[in-house]
Design a protein around this nucleic acid. Sequence first.
DNA 1: ACCTGCGGGACTACCCGTTGCT
DNA 2: AGCAACGGGTAGTCCCGCAGGT
Lengths: 190, 190, 190, 190
Amino acid sequence: MKKGAQTKQQILEQATKLLQSQGYHATGIAQLAGEAPKGSLYFHFPGGKEEIAASAVRLSGERLASDLQLALSSCQDAGEALALVIDFLGQRLEESGYREGCPVATVALEVAHESEPIRMACADSFARWEEALRARLASLGISGERGESLAIFILSAIEGGLLLARARRSLEPLRVVAAQVRRLVAEPCS
Amino acid sequence: MKKGAQTKQQILEQATKLLQSQGYHATGIAQLAGEAPKGSLYFHFPGGKEEIAASAVRLSGERLASDLQLALSSCQDAGEALALVIDFLGQRLEESGYREGCPVATVALEVAHESEPIRMACADSFARWEEALRARLASLGISGERGESLAIFILSAIEGGLLLARARRSLEPLRVVAAQVRRLVAEPCS
Amino acid sequence: MKKGAQTKQQILEQATKLLQSQGYHATGIAQLAGEAPKGSLYFHFPGGKEEIAASAVRLSGERLASDLQLALSSCQDAGEALALVIDFLGQRLEESGYREGCPVATVALEVAHESEPIRMACADSFARWEEALRARLASLGISGERGESLAIFILSAIEGGLLLARARRSLEPLRVVAAQVRRLVAEPCS
Amino acid sequence: MKKGAQTKQQILEQATKLLQSQGYHATGIAQLAGEAPKGSLYFHFPGGKEEIAASAVRLSGERLASDLQLALSSCQDAGEALALVIDFLGQRLEESGYREGCPVATVALEVAHESEPIRMACADSFARWEEALRARLASLGISGERGESLAIFILSAIEGGLLLARARRSLEPLRVVAAQVRRLVAEPCS
DNA sequence: ACCTGCGGGACTACCCGTTGCT
DNA sequence: AGCAACGGGTAGTCCCGCAGGT
């Protein structure tokens, strides 16, 4: 019971990292399996690579969602908190040699058209993050449709910033996004 | 134009479409070759798949850059123009069954860490688009560092919006981005 | 009957069907196990797939042998009886979409050279059927070497007819065999 | 031009032997390829294993058909000729350690239900042999429906005899079939 | 000199029949 | 009795070179 779940978890752990940095198609089953023999892998994930990827994406999504919630609630100034979160993502990106960007985006773009389960796992992850943002904005008094729009916009900007930063091998886009987002949240009128 | 150059062009044309919708690793050499015999592919592109992809990305980048320039200059209201551009991207995305998003983003995320030539082609494309935005903002009086920042921010938001829209199979994120970007440009103060 | 023996029987039952329609190599252990957990399969059949197949072939052989005996003894005219048996086999073949031919032949041809136990199980089945035919012919006065030869010949023709019928997806070969066999048995002189 | 066709032929040659003695599912692609690398194999047979098998079956079918025609026409007494052919098949069977029976039968039974192309190749082979028999019988004056029936019956008996002989590891069934067939053809009345 | 048919394997995802440890 | 592990096996596809014909 314990051993089994442990192996499964280890595979998922490995998968989240590999999918984040290499994407779906560049990551082979052997790599996903890591130490575990292929036979065990297909015991735990009868759905094969697709199932592993979907699970891994979900795991990444939940983790980042809870990190996000924690970070946003730990700082009184929401704009400040967002900027810190973005900086943190940028730091991780840089320290990994611009390999670890958004843990979901690459897979999402690669398989959006060929695997519904994975696509839905990605969409759910994005929805979770958006919801975390929306909730924090609501606590600032930015609620209703405006809150939702702002949450989507901020999430878009962050995802785009991570993408540009990776392609450029530079943190500048992320820094710009952080600054603009902070201002956006701080603005009383808009 | 000779038969040879024609074949080459046709391969590139095919490549832009396939890389946009499937990404790099999911697109095989045979698919890229299309009708053309696989053997002669390496005559036209001695660098193999990598060279084809880099060229295709550059081609896509230039095309979208000139489209962008055209669209931005064809409308007096910059915010309006931007919204139209984003709507156009969204339309193409929807009509293609949410397959044709950004022609560069997928490849960029997939190969950022494994192929410098392709990564640079992606980065250059993004830079071109950013420059087009920056130039239009400058004509509005938003220049200097502020113009650059805003251009980066808008580009990030658009890329993120395309990503979210593809994963969600919904145009909502793009619509939100269009609206917010329009306001951002229109705002006198920010 | 205990739960264990019941499971065992159920596996054998499943095996006879699958081996008849798919053959040995195309039938996986998982399929043979059916509902039963794969782990316990090796408790009931320590010899693995080979043992299951041998047992299943034996079971099929005995069943068809007793069916044959019954049918042959239930009709006074031996030729008529044989024709009826052949028609019955043809009917089963057709109703199953030309899947269920001889329950032994496919396995026999597949593994004759690689598994003695299975090969012998097949040979024994054929011998049983031949013996049933021989016995009936003896009761007609066709005995001795002539009876044995005729039994072998008839069995050969039936097996060949089933084979041709399956390949052709047509009952014609079987019908021809039935008619010729009937005449063969009826002939006074031969 | 020459080299290519040669490789293809060599693969087919290998395939006919392996399919005859091992059947379809027990024969791996690597075995079928023999010396040839898999890359070349899939160049010549884009349809993979299925295409190779279908082609190989057709080749075997044509070869045996022409052998049959030759043998039947080389002997004035048709019964004698048939007996010789059957003896020859038996000899090959025995000399190969009861591995090389009918080159088509095993494959036919194995894949009749899962591959139309292969099934049809098998059916065509059987039809060719039947036609050769029918033609010879017609030259004896046994024509019309009776000739067709007899051809089918004889072919069935031979196939069945080969099957029984393989399972039993004994030439007896084939010898019996040879004798009975000879008598069948010689009979004036039937 | 331009082009391409064919060859070349390493690698893919997946599944096999089997066995130990619980 | 059975979950989990095992790793070698499957067919098939990968991207790429090279000899030689046009």
